[in-house]
Simulated assay, not measured.
Amino acid sequence: MNFLKKGGSFFLILLFLFAFSCEKVKSPVPINYGVDKCEYCAMKIMDDRFGAELITETGKVYKFDSTECLAAYYIENKDKLKIHSIWVTDFYNREFINAETAYYLHSPDLPSPMGMNLSAFKNMEDLNKIKEKYNGKVLKWSDILNMVKNKWLNKRHNHHHMHM
């Protein structure tokens, strides 16, 4: 009888460990720069100033090489996926920050991987330090979504329809 109690305890510990290990990812995971590929454009993610991630409610992590690829994927999939959170890399300190609360600099003098010249910042103080050198316009996430939709996605869809 004593053996069963010990065996039962052991089983409960294993069950707890298994349940704990299956906990879903809800925060960004490190990007393996030079190896991981962008979910949207399929290019290798190379520049650690611009990486981004989208995490679903089930814990699936999608990685991107730029804010514009994240935004395009978000626009095209927000109704299909149950999105938990979206993250961009802070240009200034290379840490993930929430994409919806980040500040963005749109500067032609500071190219991003996909050419929309977008950089993300955790706060205005850091953004202004970079803006002093590169100029540009300050944007919020809603501005990014509008810009990507109007200047990137609409052109791609119109181009696609012209050749059909």
Results as ranks from 00 to 15, higher is better:
N77A: 14
Y92D: 10
Y92H: 11
Y103F: 15
K82F: 07
T101R: 01
D79E: 15
L105C: 06
F96R: 08
I86L: 06
Y103P: 03
K78T: 12
Y104A: 07
E100G: 05
D79S: 11
R94W: 07
S107W: 09
P108M: 15
K82G: 12
H106G: 15
A99P: 01
P108K: 14
L105E: 12
A99G: 01
L105Y: 04
I97Q: 03
N98G: 03
H84E: 13
S85M: 07
P108V: 13
F91C: 10
Y92S: 09
D109G: 11
N98Y: 04
T89F: 01
W87R: 05
D90W: 07
T101I: 04
P108A: 15
I83N: 13
N77W: 09
S107T: 04
D79G: 00
T101V: 06
R94F: 00
N77G: 00
A99T: 02
A102I: 02
F91E: 12
V88W: 03
K80A: 13
W87V: 04
P108E: 13
I97N: 00
Y92W: 11
E95T: 15
L81A: 12
A99K: 01
F96W: 10
H106S: 10
E100V: 07
D109C: 06
Y92P: 00
K78G: 03
D90H: 09
K78S: 11
F96Q: 07
F96V: 06
W87M: 04
F91L: 12
S107K: 08
R94G: 00
N98P: 01
Y104P: 09
N93Y: 06
K82W: 05
A102F: 02
H106F: 14
F91H: 05
N98E: 10
N77M: 13
Y103I: 10
N98A: 04
K82I: 00
L81P: 14
D79N: 15
S107P: 13
Y92T: 13
S85T: 06
I86P: 03
I86Y: 07
S85E: 11
I86W: 01
S107D: 04
K80S: 15
D79R: 00
S85L: 05
K82N: 14
E100W: 04
Y92E: 14
N93M: 14
E100N: 08
V88F: 03
W87T: 05
N93A: 10
D79F: 08
H106E: 07
H84P: 07
N98K: 06
E95H: 11
Y103T: 02
F91K: 09
K80M: 08
D79V: 09
K80V: 00
Y104D: 07
I97H: 04
L105T: 09
A99I: 02
A99C: 01
L105V: 10
T101H: 06
E95I: 10
R94Y: 04
I86V: 15
H84C: 03
D79H: 03
W87K: 05
K78P: 00
L81G: 13
D79L: 11
T101M: 04
S85K: 07
T101E: 09
H84L: 09
Y92I: 15
D109F: 08
N98V: 01
E100Y: 01
D109K: 13
T101P: 03
N98T: 02
F91P: 04
A102M: 02
D109Q: 15
I97Y: 02
Y103K: 14
E95K: 15
H84W: 14
T89S: 10
W87Y: 06
L81W: 14
H84F: 09
F91I: 10
